[in-house]
């Protein structure tokens, strides 16, 4: 028996550790460092219909135990991802979760329809929560009705299960979660980054060219844990939790809060081997908790 095995809609994960979208490119950089087949799954960088150039620099700024970023969904576009990135990833025994972004519903639907046909794409992650682009992204994720309708439209064309990535930049995240569940979402991934700003001490102006950026890293973990705790008790679809995970204890926390699997983002920049290291640490953590299999921990905070 594989104690780390996790079964989710569309995803049979050999362990619950997934590099988060936007923090792992399309895997090529990290493949130089370790075997990507070790991972539970990979959430590839957000893909849009057309090529996106992203935002001007500076795009990142460090903060206390965290960082702000405003990359702006730079990506090579759907055609390139279908032709080069996804086929390249087929050499690894790892399911791909394709992060789908767009400017309007038509965009999202077009990308979802096509990218869900790739043989190694086992699920979609609908990005309705990017805080760093002017159109699309977060505007779809802050209104329950819009979020629900977009989910339904994408669900109608996708060949694989659809997970919706939620923004924490809302008054009531449970309401959005319920709305996407009603729209037919197969699962939820949460949380995207928190909108923040850092000023330059000399000029007094924002450091990031975009002005605002998305806060990530260990600083956001308590916010993410609270939101997973709340949402998991109010919906009947599984959650992939993320926000500031750096080690196996953090993973246990997210599972306890109610997530079924987790994504690791910013920590990849600090320690590029963080994902395989966590996977290696998990069995011992389960022993310490007298826990037979990792799925037994899911939601124990509110059971």
């Amino acid at each position: 028996m594989n104690r780390l095995q996790v079964e989710l809609p569309g995803l049979s994960l050999k362990n619950p550790i997934i590099p988060a979208s936007g923090c792992f490119g399309f895997g090529q950089e990290y493949a130089k460092l370790y075997d990507l087949s070790k991972l539970g799954a990979i959430m590839i960088k957000a893909t849009t219909l057309e090529i996106r150039k992203g935002n001007p620099t500076p795009r990142v700024a460090e903060t206390s135990s965290g960082m702000l970023n405003a990359i702006g969904l730079q990506n090579p576009g759907l055609a390139h991802v279908m032709e080069y990135e996804l086929p390249w990833l087929e050499q690894y025994d790892v399911p791909i979760i394709a992060n789908v972004a767009g400017t309007d519903t038509t965009d999202y639907v077009a990308v979802a329809e096509k990218i869900s046909t790739a043989p190694n794409v086992k699920a979609l992650e609908l990005n309705i929560s990017c805080p760093n682009v002017k159109c699309g992204g977060i505007q779809f994720g802050t209104d329950p009705k819009t979020a629900s309708e977009l989910t339904a439209a994408v669900k109608a064309v996708s060949k694989v299960p659809v997970y919706v990535k939620l923004s924490p930049n809302v008054t009531n995240i449970v309401e959005i979660a319920k709305a996407v569940e009603a729209g037919g979402a197969d699962g939820i991934t949460m949380i995207n980054t928190l909108i923040g700003m850092r000023l330059h001490p000399k000029t007094g102006k924002p450091i990031i060219a975009n002005g605002t950026g998305g806060l990530s890293g260990p600083a956001v973990k308590p916010v993410a844990i609270r939101m997973v705790y709340d949402v998991s008790q109010q919906v009947n679809i599984p959650i992939i939790g993320m926000g500031g995970i750096t080690n196996a204890e953090d993973v246990i926390d997210f599972l306890s809060a109610g997530a079924s699997a987790v994504a690791v983002g910013t920590a990849n920049f600090v320690d590029p081997f963080v994902c395989p290291n966590i996977i290696d640490e998990l069995p011992q953590k389960l022993d310490e908790l007298n826990c037979e299999k990792i799925s037994d921990l899911v939601g124990r905070s509110h059971r």
Partner: peptide, 16 residues
Amino acid sequence: EERMGCGLGACYACVC
């Protein structure tokens, strides 16, 4: 030089 994230090419922070 540019403000960097990962240093490996994965995060797209340090573009020129």
